[in-house]
Design a protein around this nucleic acid. Sequence first.
DNA 1: CTCCAGGCCATTT
DNA 2: AAATGGCATGGA
Length: 271
Amino acid sequence: MYETRISCLDLKSVADSGQCFRWKTEGCKVGIIAFGRYVEISQRGDVFSFDCTRQEYEDIWRNYLDIDTDYELVCGRADGLNDSLLRAAVNAGRGIRILNQDFFEVLISFIISQNNNIPRIKKITEAFCERFGKPVYASKKMAGFSFPAPEDLRNLKPQDLKGLGLGYRDKYLCDAVRWYLSGGEDMVLELRNMPAGEQRRILKQSICGVGDKVANCVMLFGLHKLDACPIDVWMKKLIKEDYGGVCPAWMTDKYAGIYQQYTFYYKRGAR
DNA sequence: CTCCAGGCCATTT
DNA sequence: AAATGGCATGGA
């Protein structure tokens, strides 16, 4: 058990933010499986109890929760952009952080996400993990399944995915696995040192089923490219209904991805 | 029944 | 370059 204070973090908001699909919430607690491990975190205000050692928190969850990015600064900067909708969104979404998730998990998850809704994405992802992942234990009791490792999916065929509800995305998922296991893993290391435009171009041209939107999600959530700004149906609705069809200035800010998360959460929640 | 969901691809203008 | 139809699935 390790306890610490963290500002600008609300577990429930993150769980419902649409960047991760496997967090399980239970009151003020969440259960998270990532990097083959399970952790429970409970929140009281800005005090968080991690059901693990301090060492594990420092080694894994600290970076996962993006503790070293100053969200006070990011939110303050939004205030200076003089955009009332953005202000309202930041106010509503303060507590959302951009997680540092495993790249492969993000890639697969957002291929599943295309033309789909969040409850169904969660359902499909969970079924996928149950079929191809490994049991993850927490003090002898099973907590759930790991996200499948790429090696466990070698030579995956669309028919192997039958019954999971993937629909036409099955072949896209297989192509992503193929790419990752045949040079993609090494390419990810190079991607981390590239500007956004290069990253997007390579991802789109390497994987059938990855277009602008999914690429931007992979960049933002999998490569922590904070200026990547995914435009999905909710963002299009926002641009049309709230900005008269013109992209607001914050979408090209260096923290556009974070502001996009706040506004996505805000727009989708105010339905 | 139709419409929609964190879209993309292939084809046609 | 830009617009359009098709695509799987399941909930509203």
